[in-house]
Design a protein around this nucleic acid. Sequence first.
DNA 1: TTAAATGCAAAAAATTTGCAGACGT
DNA 2: ACGTCTGCAAATTTTTTGCATTTAA
Lengths: 133, 133
Amino acid sequence: MEHYALKLREHSLKATPQRAAIAEALDTYGHLSVEELYEILRKKFASLSLATIYKNIHIMLENAFVSEVKLPGQKSVYELTKEAHAHLQCTNCHTIEDIALDMECLLSQAKTKTDFDVQTANLVLSGLCKKCR
Amino acid sequence: MEHYALKLREHSLKATPQRAAIAEALDTYGHLSVEELYEILRKKFASLSLATIYKNIHIMLENAFVSEVKLPGQKSVYELTKEAHAHLQCTNCHTIEDIALDMECLLSQAKTKTDFDVQTANLVLSGLCKKCR
DNA sequence: TTAAATGCAAAAAATTTGCAGACGT
DNA sequence: ACGTCTGCAAATTTTTTGCATTTAA
């Protein structure tokens, strides 16, 4: 997928096959933990090292190619960086869904109540998905 | 502080001195990581074990005596469970502040846009505090 | 008195580091 | 060709576990 190579270079990342595969996996699955990425990529690269995953996740976070999602009571998962959005997770089946929410109503409250100059918001909503309800 | 012993028992936790000290430290400092708790309590209990901190944080989470706060790019910190609230963290000095926000404006959006039955919200706002601005 | 908690040591899991050889640009 | 990346092995760091002893209720 030359497509991922391009995206990588746009973020000043050398386009190695391992990195393209990380990008592809995240694009396909949406949200993956380090361990999950490792298991998926191992099928493609028999000699893949976990250290490679860690090193790449780090540099990809620095370059904002991927973003970390911290879920309550679970390991972090990673996703390709997209426009800001919140996450919705089912407490039963643990499915994660992206959701675009207008945060303005919160930011205005925050502006009134604190002296902070708020720049970013990280929001995770938990509940029951349609199936598990 | 017999006060903390009572609170602990209300959450079905045996009131050991170590647990009361964890409660007191969290009450005093607001938000602490495992390592910070360990360093603080060690002054009071020379023989304190890190394992004791871990075991207690776990059971206190189960019993909702404490809550975990996951901050972007950092280790989790813990706080005494209070009514739901969001967190505000300075990206420069890393100070954490609690803030009560009315989330209704988000929950109504979520209700419209998804099939989830949303139960809880975890929100961390990041920005610059008054001093660091 | 009894179930549960502590502390210790060891084990396991997660993450990081250094380096030689391979590879992208 | 150069600087960076990969894979490996080892080192670190973080978290968990088992067990003997102590302790809260």
